[in-house]
Design a protein around this nucleic acid. Structure first.
Lengths: 140, 140
DNA sequence: CTACAAAGGTTTGATGTCAAACAAAAAGGA
DNA sequence: TCCTTTTTGTTTGACATCAAACCTTTGTAG
């Protein structure tokens, strides 16, 4: 649905970025991951151990989506899941050693994505773009 | 995966728009459709009958994705599919009367989306935004 | 004309995604 | 204490999505 040109362009940009990330992840043979898995790992890199609840909020996906996403990362050995001791409802997700060892790769992919975006716009234009997108989002 | 702020903002903007469209479609009881179905109908509103091949290109989805999307629209009675007479490989998708009758609703949703986006940015800013997104996409 | 390659679509299998229903634990109120 | 509500997370069912394999029809080289 792309009646307005802006909506169309935003969708296309997002698709390009998404495909770029997926292809980079595959190139590194990390397992067949999608950007959402990357979101989870990035969140863990930045915040350490996190309960499912916070992960759900941070990656902006339904909780019933996050469960299998995390499960996959567990099966690949990148994270583990442990019950909180105070509140037994809470499951805390944390990086394993193997998961932490992937960080350089994710940093590299992030950097590459950044370079790709800024290949054809200036830093100043990037600022403008960020500002406009924030305006649209903030008062949505 | 939202290391760079811009990538993150573009994703969030796209998600907001997508959810907006889905909720509008549901509000109109058109059937449980997603934006991709809207993309197909909009393409047909603009170009009349279209072969699957062109539909695939226009909505930027894999051909194996478009097949079931169209099938759903057929089941809902909004489009039909007929074999081309010259080239028997080609299946042409066309709007039915019922499908055409939905056009006002889609025009309304488009307009609402436009209003939502431009609620907090000026026309001039919209122009700038479009320009910058095009820059990023074009030389991707 | 025949064989091979290319093009247009569908099928199959795997998986991400959401909504709704569910289960279990904690919180709160009487 | 006991009952109700809220919170946290999983399960289930439906479906969009893609990649790879497949089928059918065209196009083409020899």
């Amino acid at each position: 649905m792309k009646p307005d040109n802006l909506a169309y362009l935003i969708s296309v940009a997002r698709e390009k970025m998404s495909r770029f990330i997926v292809s980079e992840l595959q190139r590194h043979k990390i397992g067949k991951l999608v950007p959402s898995h990357g979101d989870i790992l990035m969140a863990l890199y930045q915040h350490g151990s996190l309960p499912m609840k916070d992960l759900v909020r941070m990656i902006r996906k339904d909780k019933s989506t996050v469960t299998p996403l995390v499960e996959k990362l567990i099966n690949l050995g990148y994270v583990d899941k442990n019950q909180d001791e105070q509140d037994l409802r809470i499951k805390k997700i944390a990086l394993t050693f193997k998961g932490r060892s992937l960080r350089p790769i994710f940093d590299e992919i992030s950097e590459k994505l950044y370079q790709r975006i800024y290949k054809n716009i200036s830093v100043e234009e990037g600022k403008t773009l960020r500002l406009l997108l924030e305006k649209i989002i903030a008062h949505w």
